[in-house]
């Protein structure tokens, strides 16, 4: 198959998909093609797609690729869709989420130790919004629940994967400068 045709198919697949399309899924779309060729086709598609002055972008999110609008057009799009911005997470919820994201798998007691306050309702919100998932139970006395972030978390914050997060050391450095 011609590279250009392959790229056209990949573009269409990314367009119709509900979820970010993973590279492995694309390999299933082209069973006869060399996986390396597919990857190269994808990369150059993203490059040319994103460099054209169009309204859409292909972005890597949660281990896959998805097509989104450009952030700079949000006002016009919102006025067309007649939607209001999504309810944002409270600072308490974001802090709890930050602890979970960096310390996972983590228990409630460990979250309490870092935040210095109970986080029951923040955690409830995070579970309801499916940003946090229950990973299991810690094999210690009382078998406390272990929490971790979900795929929804990556999507919500536009992260490729967990290692896409800045390191904690960077925040420690900033904290040292602030105090």
């Amino acid at each position: 198959m011609e590279i250009s045709e392959m790229q056209a198919v990949i573009e269409a697949v990314i367009y119709v998909a509900d979820d970010p399309v993973r590279l492995e899924e694309l390999k299933e779309v082209f069973p006869k093609e060399n996986p390396e060729t597919i990857e190269q086709a994808l990369q150059s598609l993203i490059e040319s797609f994103n460099s054209r002055p169009g309204g859409m972008l292909i972005r890597e999110v949660a281990g896959g690729f998805r097509m989104t609008t450009r952030p700079e057009h949000h006002e016009q799009i919102r006025s067309y869709l007649k939607t209001r911005p999504n309810a944002k997470l409270s600072m308490a919820a974001l802090e709890t989420l930050a602890v979970i994201a960096y310390k996972q798998p983590v228990t409630m007691a460990e979250i309490l130790a870092i935040r210095g306050k109970k986080s029951t309702s923040a955690l409830k919100t995070l579970l309801e919004r499916k940003l946090v998932a229950i990973l299991g139970r810690k094999q210690v006395v009382g078998r406390p629940i272990l929490y971790g972030t979900s795929k929804e978390f990556l999507i919500h914050f536009g992260l490729k994967n967990l290692s896409d997060l800045p390191t904690l050391e960077e925040f420690a450095q900033i904290a040292g400068e602030q105090l």
């Binding site: 944002k88 997470l89 600072m91 974001l94 802090e95 989420l97 930050a98 602890v99 994201a101 960096y102 870092i114 935040r115 210095g116 914050f157 997060l165 800045p166 904690l168 925040f171 420690a172 900033i174 904290a175 040292g176 602030q178 105090l179």
Partner: peptide, 14 residues
């Protein structure tokens, strides 16, 4: 310091 570190991480998420 630990708490401030996570406050900064929360800002990033925001």
């Amino acid at each position: 310091l630990e708490h401030q570190k996570f406050k900064n991480a929360a800002e990033m998420l925001y």
